[in-house]
Design a protein around this nucleic acid. Structure first.
Lengths: 141, 141
DNA sequence: ATGAGTGCAAAACCTTTGCACTACC
DNA sequence: GGTAGTGCAAAGGTTTTGCACTCAT
């Protein structure tokens, strides 16, 4: 997704174009394939628009989450990581590099098998979270 | 797992038997198939040993995590839930009732498929987290 | 007796919120 | 001009930590 495409998607009377948002959008677009913490998104945004405030980052993450534009995970040690949602509308999962945060899309989902197994035990699955962690080629070296 | 079995497993010069721990162990054993927050584990422990302190709960969760006795998940809204690890040594996953926390073991893992797909893209999976959420039979009613 | 475990209170951590001010449309 | 967005500082919730005291072995 380009910055242009990003703005085409979100711009509306309810989502105005402001200076912090312009900077933040750049950061998100530039890091589409990496999961970053609010803090590092903040740092990166500040290099573009130095006056940006951390709470603005959180507020914009929330706004974009409402627009279904943000993918978020919580790591084992309780840190939240964010990225722009993948362009692909197809349901898929991710493998996240534990060192650099790089993300690989995995277009395979075993949901049906799980659904069947759960159903036999009276459970109805409403949500599933599948996150794979590992090392990408670069970080393994 | 019975309380007896629990203590057989953990008792050592490094994990002494104390009153708060006796109470906490009871709570964990009684709720083996439910995921609970630190706060509710605390409340439940207090009914057995009222002097128990919240920090003791956290410290004991940490000790037991080091002993590989605790299974922990983070919910979408950032709450940490805990339970005693399943007795089964076999690798498996869970479906968690979003209403009552009840847990169902799912003895099926699509790891091999993921591993293969990831390998093709140069990723090495070191960890995977698969959590299914839904409603158990009782809570659906 | 000795060190692990504990209670209490304070701090730390990340995230959210209130308020007055700014700047988009 | 009106409202959404912002910066700042303060508060929020959960988890961790320092310290002195207690208790298990």
């Amino acid at each position: 997704m380009t910055t242009q495409e990003f703005w085409n998607k979100v711009k509306s009377p309810e989502y105005k174009v402001t200076q912090p948002r312009l900077a933040f959008a750049d950061v998100l677009v530039q890091n589409q394939d990496v999961m970053l913490s609010a803090e590092s998104l903040y740092e990166k945004t500040k290099t573009i628009f130095p006056k940006t405030n951390l709470s603005t980052i959180y507020r914009n993450l929330e706004s974009l989450e409402r627009l279904n534009m943000i993918y978020k995970v919580t790591t084992d040690d309780g840190l939240n990581l964010y990225k722009l949602k993948c362009a692909s509308n197809e349901h898929h999962h991710h493998i996240i590099c534990t060192k650099c945060g790089k993300v690989l899309d995995i277009h395979f989902c075993p949901f049906d098998t799980f659904s069947e197994l759960a159903g036999k035990a009276g459970f109805t699955i409403t949500e599933h979270r599948l996150e794979l962690y590992g090392l990408c080629e670069d970080c393994r070296k």
